[in-house]
């Protein structure tokens, strides 16, 4: 089985971002970039499927030359080979989905598994758009994936519980947090990943003209909360909640 896994380079989500003074973007000085955490679950799922049968896990990333580093990180935790669609253009999710659809058509995989959202823009869009553009069914926010004869049964994390959905293959699945436990990159795998094949193409080579219909005019700081107070005891806390905040 050939599985296509889109991966994204994101600023470290555990570090609070700083905005540029003119609001034109975030200050990336000194910020390290990582493989999007949700993509690790997607790669792990794909790797487990391929290891239990056979096939390959093709990682694809869309973005600047630095994304090669992200692809290498993914190749060390289960990816077989990589594909970098290299562009410095500012892309929205619709552009990403269009580029991924072009790669999909070249690769003809049996399945696409993606992370449910990237943790920088929090869009949660590209995989669903990709499915729609390709006329494929989708199963988002997967908690459990079982592959059967030409179909997949997916338990999805939804508000209030789980939903079970069956989709014909090929399909697009997105990974949620509890899908699996991603592996750590072992040193031999990191070394091996350095030699794995990464194909590079430009959007033009894929025959894609970017529409870029989303324009971020600027970023502003959210309103800060007023400073709070430290209370000395549970009694004081209950008293303040009752009489000051009036929420008890």
């Amino acid at each position: 089985m050939k599985i296509l896994v889109p991966v994204r380079r994101v600023p470290n989500p555990d570090v609070k971002v700083r905005l540029m003074k003119d609001g034109s973007g975030i200050d990336t000085e000194g910020v390290n970039f990582l493989l999007n955490p949700f993509d690790e679950f997607a790669i792990e799922q794909a790797a487990q499927i391929v290891e239990s049968s056979e096939g390959e896990v093709v990682l694809v990333s869309v973005g600047g030359a630095d994304c090669e580093e992200t692809l290498r990180a993914g190749l060390a935790v289960g990816g077989t080979r990589g594909w970098l669609v290299e562009t410095d253009a500012t892309l929205d999710s619709a552009d990403v989905a269009t580029l991924l659809a072009a790669v999909y058509k070249e690769e003809s995989p049996d399945l696409v598994i993606a992370g449910k959202q990237s943790v920088d823009t929090d869009n949660n869009q590209a995989a669903q758009m990709l499915a729609a553009k390709l006329g494929l069914p989708q199963a988002c926010f997967a908690y459990k994936v079982e592959l059967g004869d030409g179909k997949a049964t997916v338990e999805r994390e939804i508000d209030g519980g789980l939903e079970v959905k069956e989709v014909d293959l090929p399909a697009v699945i997105t990974a949620d947090l509890r899908l699996n436990q991603p592996r750590y990159a072992a040193l031999p795998q990191i070394m091996k990943a350095k030699r794995k094949e990464i194909k590079k193409s430009s959007p033009a080579e894929l025959g894609v003209e970017l529409a870029s219909r989303t324009k971020v005019l600027g970023l502003i700081e959210p309103e800060a909360r007023a400073a709070g107070q430290i209370v000395g005891s549970v009694d004081e806390l209950v008293e303040k909640l009752k009489n000051e905040a009036k929420v008890l």
């Binding site: 999710s93 989905a97 669903q128 758009m129 499915a131 988002c140 508000d159």
Partner: peptide, 23 residues
């Protein structure tokens, strides 16, 4: 922007060949 809306709206955007804004 519930799990249902997050599942549905990008698909609709893809079907209509449009971009969209989340949240």
């Amino acid at each position: 922007a519930t799990t249902t809306g997050k599942d549905l709206m990008p698909r609709l955007a893809g079907l209509l060949d449009e971009a969209m804004i989340s949240d």
